[in-house]
């Protein structure tokens, strides 16, 4: 007589717990990065990174040079 293959096993429960756990961690991480982005943009933080060409918005702000003085003096 053939026994049907038992589909539910302790092993499956353990794997299930790993899959669900990892899934929740990944969703949580995505939510965290999204939340951080919202907060940083609202605070006006610099959110751009170097993108292979110089841009004015990325260069450090230059201090105004007092009259009569030149850079390098």
């Amino acid at each position: 007589m053939m026994m049907p293959i038992q589909t539910e096993h302790e092993l499956h429960r353990r794997r299930h717990s790993r899959n669900v756990g990892l899934g929740l961690v990944l969703v949580g991480f995505a939510a965290l990065v999204f939340g951080l982005t919202v907060v940083k943009v609202r605070q006006g933080d610099l959110m751009e990174a170097y993108d292979h060409q110089p841009r004015v918005s990325l260069t450090p702000r230059e201090e105004a040079v007092p009259a009569g003085r030149e850079v390098g003096e």
Binding site: M3, E10, R14, S17, R18, V20, G21
Partner: peptide, 20 residues
Amino acid sequence: MIDTHAYEGAPEAEFRDYVA
């Protein structure tokens, strides 16, 4: 009846083992 084990020895890890 033959009982087939998919593994022997220590059981596979659960999520909480990684948390531990």
